[in-house]
Computed example of a mutant assay.
Amino acid sequence: MKFIKSLILIVFISATTSFVNAQTINTDKSEVKFKISGGGIFTVKGTFTGMKGDFNFNASDVSGSSFDICIDSKTINTKNDKRDEHLRSADFFDVEKYETICYKSNTVTKTSDGYKTTGDLTIHGVTKTVTIPFTFKNNTFEGELEINRFDYNIGEDYGTFRVGETAEVTIICKVN
């Protein structure tokens, strides 16, 4: 009987801990910003929205934290409708075939500047392991990384003259 009570207590604590650590993503206030050179002359800035998934961060137990989050690739917005339609096409993101861009963490660790998470980033059907340094303040995750579009087979026919090779990416995820 004592064993059963102990087992029930362990299950209850585990369930409660998981519930307490899980936060709800505020989809309206979360976005992924990017900037990439265009034609070597100017910089194209844009966003992706529609962020959803599991956000579990606990500063008291960083190693127990995890992220499994996707954004809607159709939401790309550079404030130029013609360019956005082209970016949604098979020439670039092929959003009909690859509807989401997803990140799933493998580890989350504390650093001297904040935190970092290492995990699998899937864009355009290609998965690569990336590390994202981030801060978490006022219920807001803010991380930055650089992505080489050729690593994900994006716009391969466009070289680097018209579109830069790497994009600077900032992830802002607000949670409740």
Results as ranks from 00 to 15, higher is better:
M1I: 07
K2A: 11
A15T: 14
T17E: 01
S18F: 15
T27E: 04
K29H: 11
E31I: 05
V44H: 04
V44K: 02
K45I: 09
T47K: 13
F48L: 01
G50S: 05
K52C: 02
F55K: 09
V62I: 10
V62Y: 07
V62N: 09
V62M: 06
S66M: 11
D72K: 03
D72V: 02
K74H: 08
T78M: 10
K79M: 10
D81Y: 15
S89I: 02
D91R: 13
D91T: 05
F92R: 03
F93V: 00
D94R: 05
K97L: 10
T100K: 12
I101H: 06
N106K: 15
N106D: 13
N106W: 10
T107P: 08
T107V: 00
K110V: 12
T111V: 14
D113G: 12
G114Y: 02
T117I: 04
T118H: 13
H124K: 12
H124G: 02
V126G: 05
T127H: 04
T127E: 07
K128N: 10
T131G: 03
T135S: 10
F136K: 13
K137L: 00
T140V: 02
E144W: 11
L145I: 01
E146A: 12
N148P: 08
N148M: 09
N148L: 09
Y152L: 05
G155F: 14
E156D: 11
F161P: 00
V163M: 03
V163A: 07
G164Q: 07
A167D: 07
V169Y: 14
V169N: 10
V169S: 13
T170Q: 09
I172T: 11
C173S: 07
